[in-house]
Simulated scan of single mutants.
Amino acid sequence: MNSPITSTLEQLPFSHWQPVIIGAPVIESFDTGLSHQVFKVSFATIERGEQKITPLFVAKHVANRETRHAEFDALQRAFQCGVSVKPIYVDDNWLITEYFNGDCLESLDLDIEQKLEIALSLVAKFHQSVKHGATSINLQQVIDKLISKSGLSPKHQQLLSTVTVEHLLPQPDCGNLVHGDVNFTNVLVNQADNTAKLIDFEAASYASMEYELGMMMSVNFIHPDTFFRVLKQSSYLCALCPKKVTRNAIMSSIINVLWYFTHDHENGTQVFKNTAFAQLEHLDLLTNEKYLLIKEMR
């Protein structure tokens, strides 16, 4: 691979972090992520007198400086409580973490409840360990901003605004740090030693636990009955109010719908539009088809 972005990546001081590496990095693009370019960085290493190519780092190219540094800070806290990979380096263009040898949870041959149990166990551990509070995310402002950029017709914008007004809960003044996007594609599992890690803290913010779980339900298209059946098995999370989680899932679905429509409007990529309509279908499920959103917005 030879491009300006990988040429820049090759100049980063990897040798300062791992003294056993030799030679130039081997850089491969990951086929993952919808908003950023992500690369696996491997090096020739010496182990027991033998040389081999070993993946050591993951490098993500992020244009937004504020987002990049916030993600690095969230990763540091998640690493400290054992639920994420070690963050290594951040600068004006790059966020670099240690490589974790795992498979994406979404791709594993497990049923939805098994996948949910793994993801919920990580979330519970994260939230039990990270108690730093700060001003909570304002969901109304997030939705209003996305609506203005979505490219949707005024009629469809008004429809989603109506759903928001009818289901938005009062937001807490102070929230805890949340991952904000516990998609099964953002969970890696090493099946050899049965360990799992959360990755991609780009959407990390301060919010309620109900928001964290509502987004997890929404982004993974999980039926509420299934979600709450598994949630009851968590001694830490089972006390949360299902109605509050569901209403946060509705807000999360609206955010996801608008995010995908915005990127479809800006990039014209069919995958964004398809996923937006899949989220609309899930939003209809969460609202008991009160608004017939799929029918109205096709």
Rank of each mutant, 00 (worst) to 15 (best):
P25C: 06
I46V: 13
T45E: 13
F39K: 01
V20Y: 00
E50I: 11
T32L: 14
H61S: 01
K60H: 06
I46A: 07
F30D: 09
D31A: 15
V38P: 03
F57Y: 11
Q51T: 11
I22R: 06
S29H: 08
I53N: 02
A24G: 05
R48E: 11
V58G: 01
F39R: 01
V41G: 02
T45P: 08
F43H: 01
Q37F: 04
G49Q: 06
S35Y: 07
V38E: 04
V41W: 04
D31L: 11
K40P: 11
H36P: 13
Q37H: 04
V41T: 10
K40Q: 14
H36T: 14
E47S: 10
A44H: 12
P19K: 13
E50N: 09
R48Q: 12
F43L: 00
F39S: 03
I22W: 00
V38H: 06
H61Y: 07
G49Y: 04
L56I: 07
I27L: 02
A59N: 05
I21G: 03
D31Q: 15
S42A: 13
V20E: 02
G49A: 09
F57P: 06
G23K: 03
G23S: 06
E28Q: 14
F30A: 14
L34C: 14
T32H: 10
L34Q: 15
F43C: 01
L56D: 00
F30H: 13
F43K: 00
